[in-house]
Computed example of a mutant assay.
Amino acid sequence: MRITQGCFSFLPDLDDVQITAQVEYCLGNEWAIGVEFTDDPHPRNTYWEMWGNPMFDLRDAKGVMMELDACRNAHPDAYIRLIAFDDTRGVESVKMSFIVNRPKEEPRIHMQRTDFVGRSQKYAWDVRG
């Protein structure tokens, strides 16, 4: 099962050239970039681990790619995403996020539906590796 979250999630994985182009787009809009990683990409898990601090003063895509490579080397089997913050209104709101690294094998979720009293249904799920 392929986890689909953020921009470009239904497209094939972006290569580093395409990621760099997106980072340049974000920096061109004066958005700060952050790198986050997790081993639990559930949609309700909105708090991924930060890799360092968001790069508010960085204006070069190469610096972002260096941080991304360092995170990939430290966590090769984690989900890693880039997030772009816009602080023009005095708050850091996320304008864009997209996954840039996935584990070799993504978890599979098995959903079991059971008919219940009347027309009600119950659902149970478990994660299978």
Rank of each mutant, 00 (worst) to 15 (best):
E67P: 09
D87S: 11
V94D: 13
I99V: 13
Q18N: 10
N29C: 13
P54A: 10
K62G: 11
H110F: 03
N73H: 13
A21V: 03
E30R: 09
N45A: 06
Y123D: 01
A21I: 05
R102L: 06
W48Q: 09
D57I: 01
G118T: 03
A70R: 11
I19W: 14
E24R: 04
M55R: 07
M111V: 09
A32I: 12
P41L: 05
Y123A: 05
R81S: 00
H75S: 08
E49F: 11
Q22I: 14
D86V: 01
A32P: 13
V35M: 07
D60V: 04
W31R: 03
Q112W: 02
C71Y: 15
S93R: 07
V35I: 15
E105H: 03
W125F: 14
G90C: 08
H110D: 13
C26E: 14
N73L: 12
D69Q: 10
E36H: 12
T46Q: 05
A21E: 13
R108Y: 01
Y79L: 03
F116C: 05
G118R: 01
V100I: 12
I33C: 07
I80Y: 09
D40T: 07
K95R: 10
T88Y: 08
E36C: 09
D126A: 04
V91Y: 15
L58T: 15
G52A: 01
Y123P: 04
D87F: 09
D57L: 03
E106G: 02
G52S: 14
E24A: 09
H42W: 06
V117D: 00
E106Q: 10
F37I: 06
W31P: 10
Q121F: 03
A74M: 15
H75N: 14
Y79I: 13
A32N: 10
V91F: 15
R113S: 04
M65G: 02
D15N: 15
V94L: 10
P76N: 06
G28W: 04
N53Y: 07
Y79C: 13
T38I: 02
L14G: 08
E49L: 03
F56P: 05
Q18R: 05
M65D: 02
N53T: 15
W31V: 07
T46K: 09
V35E: 04
R81V: 09
F37C: 13
N101A: 14
D16I: 00
L82A: 02
G52N: 12
I19D: 08
R59L: 06
R59T: 14
P43C: 06
A32K: 00
V23L: 10
I109P: 03
P76W: 11
A70C: 14
F56N: 05
M96C: 13
W48F: 14
R113N: 00
K95W: 04
